[in-house]
Design a protein around this nucleic acid. Structure first.
Lengths: 360, 360
DNA sequence: TCACTTTTTGAAACCGATTACAGGTGACGA
DNA sequence: TCGTCACCTGTAATCGGTTTCAAAAAGTGA
């Protein structure tokens, strides 16, 4: 078992053969092997200038044989281009953001850019932290969700002159791809009002540091006010995300003691699903006793019973447009500051006129 | 409207004031402002060596005032560490992989590493392409899903000496964090057999280039064979992922004309959900007429009616362990080649003894 | 063949941080 | 006061590509 003790002389001799750092090949190695200069290697491999056919071939052959892979850091340093963009989203596990990132990445990938995504957990300080981390990495562009961020963040982005685009929002100052959250929520509310609902509630995720969520609730209030109605404070509940959250939210609303709403607008389809489950478990009929509207048109929304009416925010289209926008900015092309990709109400079976309305 | 023609002399004069490249500050700028050398700036900012208090302060102040942000590429080049790891997953929109990536990233982030994720769409050539792209970027480590990859890929990884770990699989040769897909599927099958089922079917996603999916089906076959049973070819269907896929799959199974199975094991909870919907729409009772098992324990699984029996593959735990593993390898620490994080059958209401069995 | 373009090419500078190394400083004991 | 040592600090080399510049080679027309 015991290793034989190495002979002393071996220890003294330089460990030539054994140690052999086995570094991976660099341009210089390729250049030597092909009998050209490193400049020529670079020219061949990047196609940046004409090179005589025989040398071209020699370089290709040498690179192939050595299994040469360019060092990205060195390239980024000399080109002053990192070929990567960053994105900070509130929650990487949320379907809307996944679709956003997925289409955003696809678009960038087409032009050779890499996406580095981070999540902030809906915390303004985390957005700053993660974005700074990405900026230090050297990203060439940045996508953020929403318009309200740490003031230091904007300063940092401007200082580094990093092209930035905000999504799911329309801001007065910065480049945005998105929609008017208040207006779209107001539209959904008007739809419910037109059906005859007057007691409308909302169950949303946490609204702290979340301008979109806040704007949506604001839009609902406005639409109600426009018809001389208002929402009871007990009908406005804020929960942590998810199906369980939806159940809790609705339970909480009922526990408040006031007369329950006849319609609820939920922050996500998951919350809407939870609300439906809780309502059903209490013997309520959907949509007869309670209409429910979700957000994002998740896979399962159309398959619930009844199928869920939901607001499709077109995450994938927004991601693609954000990619287009940043790619343009990064290559110095002109861009439109605001791109509106309107949210759309998909009416399915979970909404109907309220019973009271039918009776009247 | 027309711009006034610029005076000729202006054209000749160098555009000094206007142009001003406005480069962002680099170490040298900080050094000058603080009256020290760049070496000291580096030492202060990284805390790599003691520096006299007054200089330390001067550097911090200068860096702050200039809004200095270190250039990641330069740092990566000189440290020969990129501080990023890559991951290639089959489908970024699949819940299991999202959880995997999310926990993997959290773990890495704790040690200052960045995750760069790519997806392959279950295509072996895409895995090669994306992984190569990441390697060129200079990643310090790599996570792959499954054990079967393009031979060139392994060669490339070895050549560049990049620590790599495979997840959701247990391979004979390479470092893995995962479980035995065949064994866990066999266990689920045995559970159904113990309930009295004899006609068991499977609906899975595409199995091409997907060793995990293949192994699972294999495990089911083995468990059946162990009791002298076998699966009808008509009961083995392969579909594209999703709820719609599940519906199609079950419809296809019924359309084949043979007697339908009394239990079905599905590749994902989405597929299981689709199967349940389709079965229900045909007047079948679950679990009375059909038992259904899913995979991954999605959020909604517990909330379906009946709640879905499913195999929890512990994606988050696997992601965390994969992070631990790579972090250890990247800092030269010893690691265990195989870590088994066993999948677990969560029994809920969608499985029960078959009617025929009860009658008997 | 010669003068003059045009195309290819290599040497060396450069990107911006880290770090090996050598030199400088001050403290302390003799 | 001097030597020694511990501790700081700056100079310069380094990482591995890209790119500028000027020289060399090749092509062109007379």
């Amino acid at each position: 078992m015991a290793q034989p003790e190495p002979r002393k002389s071996e220890g003294v001799t330089k460990p030539a053969i054994i140690q052999e750092p086995a570094r991976f090949p660099v341009t210089k190695d390729v250049a030597e092997r092909a009998g050209v200069s490193t400049a020529t290697v670079s020219r061949v491999l990047n196609g940046t200038a004409r090179v005589r056919a025989d040398k071209h071939e020699a370089v290709m052959k040498a690179a192939e044989e050595l299994g040469f892979v360019a060092n990205g850091a060195a390239r980024a340093l000399s080109k002053r281009r990192f070929m990567a963009v960053g994105a900070v989203v509130p929650n990487i596990e949320n379907e809307a953001f996944i679709r956003l990132l997925s289409s955003f990445q696809d678009r960038l990938r087409q032009e050779g850019y890499t996406l580095i995504a981070a999540n902030s957990g809906y915390d303004i300080d985390n957005v700053l932290r993660e974005a700074t981390f990405l900026i230090e990495r050297g990203i060439d562009g940045l996508m953020l969700v929403g318009d309200i961020h740490h003031p230091l963040l904007h300063a940092r982005i401007e200082r580094q002159k990093i092209p930035m685009v905000q999504v799911f929002t329309l801001s007065a100052e910065r480049a945005c791809i998105g929609f008017d959250n208040a207006a779209s929520a107001a539209r959904a509310t008007s739809y419910l009002l037109d059906l005859g609902h007057t007691r409308i509630g909302v169950i949303s995720g946490l609204r702290k540091d979340n301008d979109r969520g806040g704007a949506r609730v604001e839009g609902i209030h406005q639409a109600l006010a426009a018809r001389g109605l208002r929402m009871l404070p007990e009908h406005d509940v804020e929960i942590s995300y998810g199906i369980g959250g939806g159940r809790d939210g609705f339970r909480q609303m009922l526990a408040s003691g006031v007369e329950p709403p006849t319609a609820i607008i939920c922050g996500t389809d998951q919350i809407a699903f939870g609300t439906m489950i809780e309502a059903r478990s209490r013997g309520l009929d959907i949509p007869g006793d309670l209409s429910v509207i979700g957000h994002n048109d998740s896979d399962f929304a159309a398959f619930l019973s009844p199928p869920l009416t939901t607001i499709n925010v077109h995450s994938a289209a927004i991601g693609r447009a954000a990619g287009d926008h940043l790619l343009a900015r990064m290559s110095g092309r002109a861009t439109i500051r605001l791109t509106e990709i309107d949210a759309e109400l998909i009416v399915r079976g979970s909404t109907a006129p309220p019973r009271s309305h039918l009776r009247a």
